[in-house]
Structures are given as C-alpha cells and as structure tokens.
C-alpha cells in the first residue's frame, strides 16, 4: 500500500475528500469550514471541490450545529459536523448526549453522524480552549469516541467514523496538526474503530498513552530501552469502546502499567484503564499501576506553563525506570 508522510491535518483533509467523493450523502458543516477551510486549514478546498450545498459555514450556534447533524442523519445523510474546539462542545452537550447518543435506543435506527472537534492541547489558548473531556463522552452509552495520535490514524479513524452507522466523536489535537506519519493514500485504507495499536512491543512495562502523549511515551520507551527496561506502548486510538483485550493481554504479560494522558487523573480514561488492570490482571501485577496525567488545574496560556502542567518525556522516562525496579 503506497504511503506518504502526511501531516495530521492532511490526513483529516484527505479522509474528508475521499469520503465525500465516495458517498454523496456525506456533508460537512461547521464554523468557518467552507471559505477559509477552518481556522487552521484542516478543511481547505472541500467547498471548492464539493460545492456550497454539501459544505456549509454555520453561524456560531454549537447546539444547532450538532443538531444539524442529528436531524440530517435522521433523514438519510451521513453528516460530518465540526465543533471547533472541544470546549465548545459544552454548548452542544444536549444534542450530543441527550439526542444523538440515544437515537438508536429510542428509534431502533442508525444515526450515521460524525462530530469532529479539536482538543487545543499543545496550543496557547488557555483554559477555555484546551481542555480534555474525552472521559465525559466515553461515559455515555451510545457514543463512540476516537482520539487519533497521528496522521495515519487521523485519516483511517475519521474514514471509519464517517462510514459508521452510529454517532462518533472524533477528537483531533491541535498540538499534533503538523506532525507527520507515513499514511496510506489508498481510499480503502481504514483504521477500525475499537482497536488499539501496539506502537512498540516490550516485556517489562506496559504504557497506555493517548493523543499528544503517545509520541512522548515512545521517546521515553526508547530511552528506557537504553537503560535495560523493555517497554510496550499501546495507543488505544478509540477511547470508547476501549480495546480492553489488548490492554489486558499486555499488562498480564508485563505485570506493570503506566498510563499517560493530557487530562487530569481524577475520573479519567487513565482511571478507567487502571481499574481495568486491577480488575482483570490483579494476580499478575508486579507493581501498583501508575497514572501520569496533567495536574488537576486549569489550563494556562503561556506555553511553558502549559508544558509544566503535563507529563514530559523526562517524567515518563523516570516513571518507567521506577516502576520497573
């Protein structure tokens, strides 16, 4: 399969182009998605290619943007709606949680809706543009939540989300938009929903990392290898439903678990992964599971403060050595 070193945003853009080309029922709506192609150009050229009927700029009306997706999906479209920042999803909570997620439960019908949003992590946008809410949505029956950590997965997961018959929230990450990874250009390339990727195999410690923390975990694992500690790195890719089998299989083998995420620890994905390890691997654990998370504090604006709040490679490296002692 031919690959190209795409940037994350190019993976998203290519997925949208391919799926809109493939199925005329796919439409794209959101703030600034048409003319400017989004504030960071992620959706550039889509309106020029597919026209103003299928690619529409909306007013700043997040609840109704989400509702456009619910209603349009209910009458036969396969809409992709964009809510510019994850924080803005708070304005659309009713439509996402009370309406979209429950449509199949109430009607017995599919609702092929994709909601794209961007976690501002890695940017300097402050406390109302950079939050990580993936655990909130993962706790709602009826929602699939994906969180790609690289261009390849951004493309393949988004394509799978668009082809899925149920509501799927796709969380893109600002700090990764220009990061490259070799990505298949083929239009049939998909990354399946609900399947984790083991990015590095190892025997001593299992690391489960999400979003922007995956590359850091890989770098820390590389350093730990030089120290004689063999680290396996798992990227769940889909937060809900979580690929429990891959995580349990790895932790059962290594006996040690470190979870790295950009959200604070309390009531988070890391909390869920640790609970999973304790419930399913208790007798095989050789050390207490470790959570490396953002501090339980609001997201600041200056970049050095942003970085001070989240785990860095040094922190992850040190934790790997300590847990492997």
């Amino acid at each position: 399969m031919t690959t190209r070193p795409l940037k994350f945003w190019q993976g998203v853009n290519q997925a949208l182009h391919q799926e809109m080309e493939r199925d005329e029922k796919v439409v794209l709506v959101g703030e600034d998605v048409g003319g400017p192609g989004g504030p960071y150009g992620v959706t550039r050229n889509l309106r020029a290619t597919f026209g103003p009927n299928r690619v529409r700029d909306t007013p700043i009306s997040e609840a109704t943007i989400a509702g456009l997706g619910v209603g349009a999906a209910a009458v036969g479209l396969r809409p992709v709606v964009e809510l510019m920042f994850f924080d803005f999803c708070m304005l659309a909570m009713d439509q996402i949680v009370n309406q979209a997620a429950k449509y199949r439960y109430f009607t017995g019908r599919s609702l092929p809706l994709t909601i794209r949003t961007m976690s501002g992590s890695g940017g300097s946008y402050g406390a109302q543009h950079c939050q990580s809410f993936e655990a909130w949505f993962a706790a709602v029956p009826g929602l699939t939540v994906v969180m790609p950590s690289n261009a390849r997965d951004a493309k393949g997961l988004l394509k799978s989300a668009i082809r899925s018959d149920d509501p799927t929230l796709v969380i893109e990450t600002f700090g990764l938009l220009t990061a490259r990874r070799d990505t298949p250009v083929d239009e049939d390339f998909l990354v399946p929903l609900g399947v984790a990727e083991t990015r590095r195999t190892g025997d001593d410690v299992t690391v489960v990392a999400t979003g922007r923390m995956v590359d850091r975990a890989l770098e820390a694992a590389e350093r730990a290898a030089a120290d004689g500690v063999s680290v396996e790195v798992i990227d769940p890719r889909t937060i809900a439903p979580l690929d429990r089998a891959t995580i349990v299989g790895s932790v059962s083998r290594t006996g040690r678990l470190v979870v790295v995420q950009e959200a604070p620890a309390p009531f988070s994905v890391a909390a869920e992964v640790c609970a999973l390890a304790v419930e399913e691997c208790f007798g095989r654990l050789r050390a207490a599971p470790v959570r490396l998370c953002a501090e339980f504090a609001n997201v600041p604006t200056p970049q050095d403060l942003v970085e001070a709040r989240v785990p860095g490679v040094d922190t992850i490296h040190a934790a790997l050595l300590k847990v492997a002692e």
Binding site: V29, A63, T64, A66, G67, L68, G69, V70, G71, A72, A73, A74, V75, G76, L77, P79, Q95, Q99
Partner: peptide
C-alpha cells in the same frame, strides 16, 4: 428545535 432544523437541512 436543532433536530428539526437539521432534518430540514438534510431534506
């Protein structure tokens, strides 16, 4: 309200 608006958009 948003759902009916979205349905009208879909139609």
């Amino acid at each position: 309200l948003p759902i009916a608006t979205g349905a009208a958009f879909g139609l």
